[in-house]
Structure formats: structure tokens, C-alpha cells
Nucleic acid binder design. Structure first.
Length: 711
DNA sequence: AACTCTTTAGTCGCG
DNA sequence: CTAAAGAGTT
């Protein structure tokens, strides 16, 4: 029986799936990690080592959780409903809703997303009369979240300097305000349920006895708090099975601590991780490049990817003179690949920062190619949706001050800053919510009174309606649709508001509930799909971070320049360069068959001209694996695919790094026109370049600022 | 109180 | 440069 499940696993995968007790699985990119995880769950259940209700499986994304459940139900004839499989936040939410009393929370606590949290912080700093030039709300937000992710409350923060002490003080005020208002931010979900389990021995022992097996995906992304949470849930006889890849740890900036992998081995007495190193995705040229790059990192658990799929194609490198040329090169290659029959959706263009998508989008658009951009706002984060949700939240709980403030005057109903100030003064003095203050004192003011009547009417009217109809009704009467219909460019927003009803419909079908509160929690915990342009078979554009976990036949890795990738900000951070290198490793291993790496000597960044040297990561790829393509001597002209002239090796005389313009080559200056590069002097940022112009003679420019282009 | 203008910040982003 | 937020204007 179980042999069916285990069929086709390689020895390492087999060992991981059937490991006894706790284990750490070091799963390289493309090594069948998800398969191992789901097969282990199925195997544990099938061999009766655990019941479906006796295990806990944690992922980072809703998508991963959903996929795990889908695969599981394909493997075993069990009902996955009710199993504890989900994201850290989803499971903590479940725990806190079930035990809200013990956790000191109202049953209907609201969840703040990042935007909500920031506006709460801004509001708080305003009432405390804090100078926001000195205490940046966003810095405070990061401070609060970082500390919570490390498991620290305001009174436990180590604050040696006055500035940090003030931040800690505001942190405490913020938590107090959240507690008063019954709202919980993302980090709080985790911290609060950790405290719940830590303080309540009965509860803790109950869950420890229940969850005999705890399984964690993407373990390298766990924060210290998440690790502590897992340890609390794991009872004396419980097993913790963690799967991760330290080389793909790219989320330190949001609290992930790779150190958890080593910590886990120490804490559970695991001598060595089980390594999955056979890669089923890429050809060996690509893996060799990835191995070589990541080999430059110091602190690794250590592993090398390999494949029996053969060498495959050489990695193609292109050096553009500006970002426009880089983009046109990508487009030409995409068109050639398309002619050879490769689907657009099999090709991805990756970049380090989202701002870089512009140039690529422009070129794709000009060429009439379909593309999808990932990143940006997601469905439940859009302003019109958040407005609609605020109405829903007020109907569910009128004391929700955040929701109140968001829509009390949107659409405009004559309630200005002055009126609001009176309201919040009244609320503070009476120690009540804004809503209560509005009911008490607002009767005189027509705008406020109308708003109170509107919300009360909405609640009364929609009480008995099923979820989707309720939402449709509230959205319609809120005046949001009318407002956006009058606004130019408002069609999309109206469309999204209508889509909200559909979202509610599919939610109530899937979750089998008509509860508005459940839907609101769902909206907070799952922000929905990223915006993506229409197009069935479209080229995929996304940041390297967004590409983690995905794979494509062909990958264009663009913008490989110092300062951009590795990003300059990362160089000042502890272990920043190593994290950037891991990001490079993730990027390379996305490609199944063909990998392009490109960089540009010049690009506009924030409207400023910038001359980037080739990324050090480019030079860390062994030369033998790379073939350099060069543009024609003049501006790059599209080579016909297949009939391209034999690529010429990059001129080795000068390292492609330090000098963007070769001595003796012709360059163009916006003011002086065409000239010849005479030479360089100075180092680093001081580097100057000499150019002789036929009309203006010899000129020296600071290389960093000179607007020179090769011609 | 709505509208327009100016200012400012700008790596990556799950829940 | 460009989008969004805050300040100033009508």
C-alpha cells in the first residue's frame, strides 16, 4: 500500500519521507520539496502513525497551503476539511478566535494589514503630538514589527539611547491603543498566540498532545518568534519535520532568521540534515552556474545541486549600452523564441527591483507582445476595496475607529477635519469609540447624523441577507459605486467593487459560511491575486523575490549591475551581500532550459542618469558556461534568430566592470555631441573620463554624472 | 470642503 | 522620473 506512495522517490527523498521522529530536510531548488512534504503527510496518515487531525502543517503562503491540500486529497481518500494545514498567520488566527477570551481579545477582533497599521500609527503619533519629522511613522512601524517578530514587547525592548527609548514608548502606546480598539496586526497574531500558549499550560498541553507531527515548509523563512511558536506546540514526544533551503533565504528584511536551521538541529539533537540535491528542473550548465555563485557564500549548511539531464544550453550574456537597448534585446529574443514555438508564458523577465519593469514593459508594448506584470497592489489592498471593507467592518462592529475614519467622509458627506476633531475629542473624553461619540453628539450635525443613520440602516437592512447579497447591498448604498462612476478613470474601480461580490460568493461556497466576520478575516489574511494585465499566453515580468518557487523554460535575468544587483542598500547591511547572492542563486535556478543574463552600462534611475558596472555576480559565473552576445558595432540591431552571426567574445582588453566606455571608442554627449574617449583618471566615484570633441576640444567629466552614450 | 499644487521618497513583500 | 501624500488655495 504505502509502496504506492513511495514509488518513484529517489533515495534521499525516500529517507526524508519516512524519517523517524524529527528531521531537517535541506531541499535544494527543484529537488521535489513539495512532493516530499505532501508524501510524508500521506505516508504518516496511511501507515496510521497519525490521524489527519493529529498533525499540523505550516506554510508561508496561502497558495502553498492550498496546493498541499490539493495534492494530499489526490493521494489519499480523506476529507482535508478541518485539518490544521495553513499559514502561520491563518493558524494563529484560528487559535486566537477559538480562545479569544484566554488571549484577552474580543471575539470579533479585526486584523490590520500593513496599510491599516501605518494609518493607526500615524493617528497615534498625531494624538500624542509627536513630530513626525523626527519620528518617522514608517520607521516606527518597522521597529514595532521587528521587535514583535523577535518576540519582544515594548517593555522588553533593549533601548540604550533616548531615541530608541522613545520608539519603545510609542510601541507601548500603539499596543495599548490596539488593545482598546480590539485590532491586531500581523505580527501580533503570532506574538499573541505565542503568549497564549506560553502562559496557559492546560491549553498548551492540549495542543501538544494533539499534534504528534508538525511539518514546516520554507523553514529558512521562519522568524525567531515563529520558531518559538513551533517549539511550544511540539510536545515532549512530538516530531518536527522542517523542510527548507538556507541558500534560498531571501527574506531577512522581514524577520526571517536562517539561524533557525542550525538552531533546530541543536535543539532536537539532529546530527545532520537530509539533503535533497538532485534537481529535476534544470540542465547542468544552469546548475553549475548556480553552484559556483552560491559557493562564494561563507555561512552555508552546504550542498551542491546536480542533475542527470545533461549539459543543455550555454548561458547567454548580453551587455547593453542603455536600458532601452537591454529591453529591445530581450524583446528580440522573445520574438525569436516565439517563432521557434515557445509559448510566451514559458518566458520570464526578472529584475531586482520593480521599477526596472518600465523599460521592459515599454519595449514589449511597442512590439505588441502580451505580458503580465506581477507585483503592485493586490485585490484586497486596492483603495476602493478597502473603502468597501471599511463599510462592512462598521456594519459588523461600529466601534471600529479605523473603519470609521476611513469612510466617515468618503464619499464626501460634509464632514471635515474640524468636525472630526470635535468627535475624537468627545470620544477621548468619554472614553468611547468615535461611533459612540457620533451617536451621542452628532445628532446636531447633519453630516454625522446622516452617516450614523446610513450605517444603522445598512445593518438593519442586510441582517438576514446571505453574505454576497449583503455585501452587494452595502456597497450599493454606501455611495461608493456612484462616486466612482462620476470620477474619470473610475470604471476599473467600479468593476473591482462588483468583483467583491463575486469574491464573497466564492468564499462562502468554499468556506461554507455566510458570516461577514469570517469574510473580513479572510480578506485580511489573503490579499488576493496580484494585479496582472490581461492576456492568455503572456510573457511573465516579476522581481526575483516574486519568482521564488516558480520555474520557466527561459529566464531573462536583467539589470545585473553593481548597485542594482547586488543592491547598494544591501551592502551596508550585515550579511547583506550574502543575501543578495542567495537572491542571485534563486534567480538562476528559475530557468529550466535557457538563461539570459544582461546588464546595461547606463540607465535612468529615479530620473537620474546612472553608470553601472557589471555585477560581481556576473563574474562569479564560470566563463566556460557563458557565451557573450554583442550588439552590432552601431546601435543594437535585431539579429534574426538562427541566422545570427557567430557571437564575438567580449573584448578582454578591459574588464567589463570598471570602464563603461572603451578608450578610443566614440561616445555622444548631450551638449558637445560626438567625441572620442581619450582616457580615465581617478578611482571609484571620483573616476573622470576624458573625451575629445571635434568642436569643443578635450573635456573631463566625472564618470558617474557624465551623460555619455556609446555610439 | 473640494480642488490643485507642491513636496517627497523611491529594494525586496508573505500574511 | 513618477506616484502618492500632505499642504495650500479657492
Amino acid at each position: 500500500m504505502s509502496s504506492d506512495l513511495l514509488n518513484g522517490l529517489n533515495p534521499a527523498q525516500h529517507a526524508a519521507v519516512t524519517a523517524q521522529g524529527s528531521a531537517l530536510v535541506l531541499a535544494g531548488a527543484g529537488s521535489g520539496k513539495t512532493r516530499v512534504l505532501t508524501t510524508r503527510i500521506a505516508w504518516l496518515i496511511q501507515t496510521a502513525q497519525v490521524s489527519p487531525m493529529g498533525l499540523l502543517a505550516v506554510t508561508f503562503t496561502n497558495k502553498a497551503a492550498k496546493e498541499m491540500l490539493t495534492r494530499l486529497s489526490a493521494m489519499l481518500p480523506i476529507n482535508t476539511r478541518g485539518m490544521w494545514v495553513g499559514t502561520f498567520h491563518g493558524l494563529c488566527n484560528r487559535l486566537l478566535r477559538t480562545h479569544h477570551r484566554e488571549a484577552g481579545l474580543p471575539q470579533l477582533f479585526q486584523i490590520l494589514d500593513q496599510q491599516d497599521q501605518l494609518s493607526v500609527i500615524k493617528r497615534l503619533l498625531k494624538t500624542l503630538n509627536v513630530d513626525t519629522d523626527k519620528y518617522d511613522p514608517r520607521k516606527l512601524q518597522a521597529f514595532i514589527n521587528m521587535n514583535k517578530e523577535a518576540g519582544l514587547r515594548a517593555d522588553k525592548v533593549e533601548a540604550w539611547d533616548p531615541y530608541t527609548r522613545r520608539l519603545a514608548e510609542y510601541f507601548g502606546e500603539y499596543d495599548a491603543q490596539c488593545q482598546r480598539e480590539g485590532v491586531v496586526d500581523f505580527a501580533e497574531l503570532l506574538l499573541r498566540s505565542h503568549e497564549l500558549l506560553a502562559r496557559n499550560a492546560l491549553l498548551r498541553e492540549h495542543y501538544q498532545e494533539r499534534f504528534r507531527h508538525i511539518l514546516v515548509d520554507e523553514f529558512q523563512d521562519t522568524s525567531r518568534l515563529q520558531y518559538a511558536w513551533l517549539q511550544l506546540l511540539r510536545g515532549p514526544g512530538g516530531a518536527l519535520f522542517a523542510v527548507g533551503d538556507d541558500d534560498q533565504s531571501i527574506y531577512a528584511f522581514r524577520g526571517a532568521d536562517v539561524g533557525n536551521m542550525g538552531q533546530l538541529m541543536t535543539d532536537l539533537g539532529i546530527a545532520a540534515p537530509i539533503k535533497l540535491t538532485q534537481n529535476y528542473r534544470s540542465h547542468s550548465t544552469i546548475l553549475d552556474a548556480a553552484n559556483a555563485v552560491i559557493g562564494n557564500n561563507r555561512n552555508r549548511l552546504g550542498k551542491e545541486l546536480w542533475t542527470d539531464a545533461g549539459k543543455g544550453e550555454v548561458i547567454r550574456h548580453f551587455q547593453a549600452s542603455d536600458d532601452g537597448e537591454e529591453a529591445r534585446f530581450v524583446v528580440e529574443e522573445i520574438q525569436a523564441l516565439r517563432r521557434d514555438g515557445l509559448g510566451h508564458s514559458q518566458m520570464a523577465v526578472l529584475y531586482r527591483s520593480n521599477a526596472q519593469s518600465r523599460a521592459i514593459e515599454h519595449a514589449l508594448f511597442s512590439a505588441g507582445l502580451p505580458y503580465k506584470v506581477y507585483g503592485g497592489l493586490r485585490f484586497f489592498e486596492r483603495a476602493e476595496i478597502k473603502h468597501a471593507l471599511a463599510y462592512l467592518r462598521l456594519v459588523a462592529n461600529p466601534d471600529d475607529d479605523n473603519a470609521f475614519l476611513r469612510v466617515v467622509n468618503f464619499p464626501a458627506r460634509g464632514i471635515g477635519a474640524r468636525g472630526l476633531e470635535q468627535l475624537s475629542d468627545a470620544a477621548r473624553q468619554a472614553g468611547t469609540s468615535l461611533w459612540a461619540a457620533a451617536c451621542a453628539s452628532g445628532a446636531g450635525k447633519k453630516g454625522v447624523a446622516a452617516f450614523v443613520l446610513l450605517i444603522e440602516g445598512l445593518r438593519a437592512d442586510s441582517l438576514e441577507l446571505p453574505l454576497a447579497e449583503k455585501i452587494e447591498h452595502i456597497v450599493a448604498l454606501s455611495g461608493l459605486i456612484a462616486h466612482y462612476q462620476n470620477e474619470k478613470d473610475g470604471e476599473d474601480r467600479v468593476e473591482n467593487l462588483r468583483e467583491l461580490t463575486n469574491a464573497a460568493l466564492s468564499f462562502s461556497a468554499e468556506a461554507e459560511t455566510q458570516s461577514l466576520e469570517d469574510f473580513l478575516a479572510h480578506a485580511a489574511l489573503e490579499a488576493g491575486e496580484h494585479e496582472a494585465q490581461a492576456g492568455q499566453d503572456a510573457v511573465q515580468l516579476m522581481s526575483v523575490h516574486a519568482a521564488k518557487g516558480l520555474e520557466f523554460h527561459t529566464v531573462f535575468l536583467t539589470g545585473l549591475e553593481e548597485g542594482l544587483f547586488p543592491h547598494e542598500n544591501a551592502l551596508n547591511e550585515a550579511d547583506g551581500l550574502e543575501e543578495e547572492r542567495r537572491l542571485m542563486y534563486v534567480a538562476i535556478t528559475r530557468a529550466r532550459r535557457r538563461l539570459y543574463v544582461t546588464h546595461s552600462q547606463y540607465r535612468l534611475l529615479h530620473g537620474q542618469p546612472r553608470y553601472g558596472l557589471a555585477s560581481r555576480f556576473l563574474e562569479e559565473i564560470p566563463e566556460a558556461l557563458v557565451q557573450s552576445l554583442r550588439p552590432a558595432r552601431t546601435a543594437y540591431q535585431a539579429p534574426t534568430y538562427g541566422a545570427r552571426p557567430t557571437p564575438v567574445a567580449v573584448d578582454a582588453a578591459l574588464p567589463s566592470g570598471k570602464y563603461p566606455h572603451r578608450i578610443g571608442s566614440r561616445v555622444t554627449h548631450p551638449r558637445y555631441g560626438e567625441g572620442v574617449v581619450g582616457g580615465y583618471q581617478g578611482q571609484g566615484a571620483e573616476t573622470e573620463i576624458r573625451v575629445s570633441f571635434p568642436g569643443a576640444g578635450d573635456k573631463w567629466f566625472i564618470l558617474e554624472y557624465a551623460r555619455l552614450t556609446n555610439c
